[in-house]
């Protein structure tokens, strides 16, 4: 069960053929206090790199992209009720949605934790 990261600051964790997706702790620190999230409905088919969800702070709105392709099986309802979980638990309870993976090989192009850390340090 490894965790992978994108250059757009999403993380994805795979368990069998189900991937859990969220935004990184670094991303939440840049956003400020999150006040609203808009999540995809179950059943929606997402394409890698395309808009999947929206996360808003008071002064910023950002699109969250699907790190891999697949079909949404569940959105995190408790995040909708308490968006501050993006700030307090970005990489754990603050997950956004779960996907039925379409093509596991898409994961290969993503960064591991160390690579992502280095990426953040060098680009920000």
């Amino acid at each position: 069960m490894t965790k992978k990261f994108t250059k757009d600051h999403e993380w994805v964790q795979v368990d069998g053929d189900v991937a859990t997706v969220g935004v990184t702790d670094f991303a939440q620190s840049q956003l400020g206090d999150v006040v609203f999230v808009e999540l995809p409905d179950a059943g929606r088919v997402l394409e890698k790199g395309k808009e999947a969800a929206v996360v808003e702070s008071v002064k910023a709105a950002s699109d969250v992209y699907a790190p891999v392709s697949g079909t949404v099986v569940e959105a995190n309802q408790s995040l909708v009720d308490d968006p501050s979980m993006v700030n307090s638990a970005a990489e754990t309870d603050g997950w956004f949605f779960k996907l039925q993976l379409k093509d596991a090989s898409e994961l290969d192009g993503l960064m591991d934790e160390a690579a992502y850390k280095a990426f953040v340090e060098e680009s920000h």
């Binding site: 609203f36 808003e56 702070s57 008071v58 002064k59 910023a60 709105a61």
Partner: peptide
């Protein structure tokens, strides 16, 4: 409030 709907954001 709810300014993320608006053009400046």
């Amino acid at each position: 409030t709810l300014s993320t709907r608006e053009q400046h954001i």
